[in-house]
Amino acid sequence: MNLLEIKNLKAKIGDKEILHGIDLTINRGEVHAIMGPNGSGKSTLSYVLSGRDGYEVTDGEILLDGESVLDMEADERARAGMFLAFQYPVELPGVGGMSFLRAAVNARLREKGEDEVDQLAFVKMVRAKAKALGVDDEMLKRAVNVGFSGGEKKRYEILQMALLEPTMAVLDETDSGLDVDALRIVSEGVNALRGEARGMLVITHYQRLLSHIVPDYVHILAGGRIIKSGDKDLALEVENNGYAGLIDAA
């Protein structure tokens, strides 16, 4: 069965239709990249997939493991295995990182009918995964995203992905605001999570992320439609020639 199937997806914000009919299928083990210029609908697609309020699907279908998610709330989709790494993670003042992460992990475990993880075991689990991502203890003690640098926020997103072990991960502009070193650490973290357990959709404006996280497929999104699909070489074509030529040709 396909992991994620998007069929003729149309969506609007308010009265404005942003996505004009998207078709995309992602299987387990695959990494797809969506590239596109500003305003092409990339972030909208990530929000529509994850079920954010205010984004209305007017036509089409989204199937996760063969089940429609359109009637599911954002938290239900998350517990079903959908994960979004945010472009701009929001600060949660006073909310301790450890208790937040544990609440999220336990929500997912409950959904799967598994036992919740106790505090001690959880701390161990987090420390191990955090170390690989360069997230130190001090950061884990702070309130969620509060006072984090851009790079720290992105590493924290990937840490959450590593803990939640989603089946379908959407990464929205994970490279934005990262310097070269941070980009490498984050990419290594993402690559470590690649595998048969999940599919990934990497949304980015620039090719540079895709030389670290090498995708199996690349799709060009422009004006709310996928105008071209190909393999990783398509990303290089964008790098060399820009989006304009592709959009004109479409």
């Binding site: 954002a74 929001v90 937040f100």
Partner: peptide
């Protein structure tokens, strides 16, 4: 904020 609500709910919290 709506951003905070969505962020937490995307992590599976109702």
């Amino acid at each position: 904020s709506e951003d905070q609500m969505f962020y937490c709910r995307q992590r599976g919290l109702d």
